[in-house]
Design a protein around this nucleic acid. Structure first.
Lengths: 156, 156
DNA sequence: ACATTTTATTGCATTATGCAAGTAAGTACG
DNA sequence: CGTACTTACTTGCATAATGCAATAAAATGT
């Protein structure tokens, strides 16, 4: 019988592939998969610093720095020095960046709708609620780990 | 409010990070994250050909070929010519490969248990069932996509 | 004022990646 | 048969990604 670990592994893998495919299909010319993650996270977290995003994505800051430079050069994000601390760079999406992300969103939600189409309303609801539970639980487990080991969730 | 797309995105990302951390902590010396995925998939699918695994993982066959060579050199997998078709290489885990994978499994299940620890029994059950539903739904959506577009699920 | 820490950037070497091309084995069809 | 075509895998090569070490610049502590 299939373990929870296997279920999660397989689901995460497939979702990753779906994500890559969508990103590639709608804006492969403009952004790589990694860069699409960065756009997503910038939108999600307001006006984050480079470190914040890099850590959230589990990416080395140096790698992140280069990716951010690339996105800046393409006019998809803006980097401005924080007024509070001139060492930190605050990130934001440009209109073009928001557009690219919106296009990826739309592909993704389309595909996700296809996936959910084979479910009953009840199943759909259950699954969505479970995802919420799962994310909360991961966050909680992360906090515990920080208290115990001084480590953030899953990142080194 | 958080969309399903966002929930999925975030969950998949965190799981990926967890996966990387576990793989790194217990056998970073022996296998890369990508290689751990390969071991996982070989075990999961019996005695697959190179192409099968590469496709399942959404990896280019040439990249896969090199990774497989590396795993073979480390004595973690065996590659033997198929008796049915001498072009195809059938993959299998060696004892050492199975051990490495078992170690990763054990780290992962430990972490997953931590995550599930903050849930009630009912929630846990619901989440597990939902993961099953989700994977089935992805598989179904994949089949539909094949019929319509001649494309496998999410891979190009 | 000076040492320490923090944030971000660059140098450099290693690795991953994928396309194009090649080899070897199987298949189809005259 | 044999010749053309397809399929499974491997290598060449060029490009992109990655991370550690070193650096610059700003903030903090004492």
């Amino acid at each position: 019988m299939e373990s929870v670990r296997e279920k999660l592994q397989i689901f995460a893998r497939r979702f990753g592939l779906l994500n890559a495919a969508c990103c590639d299909e709608c804006c492969g010319e403009q952004v790589s998969l990694a860069q699409s993650h960065i756009l997503f996270e910038i939108r999600r977290s307001g006006a984050p610093s480079m470190q914040q995003v890099a850590e959230e994505l589990g990416m080395d800051v140096t790698t992140f720095s280069r990716q951010a430079k690339g996105l800046d050069a393409k006019g998809l994000i803006v980097r401005k020095v924080s007024p509070d601390d001139r060492r930190v760079t605050l990130l934001g999406l440009t209109d073009a960046g928001a557009d690219v992300l919106a296009r990826i969103d739309s592909y993704m939600t389309g595909r996700i709708d296809q996936i959910f189409a084979s479910m009953t309303d009840f199943e759909r609801e259950t699954v969505v609620r479970s995802l919420g539970l799962l994310n909360e639980a991961v966050a909680k487990a992360g906090q515990v780990a920080v208290q115990r080991e001084g480590v953030i969730a899953c990142c080194k």
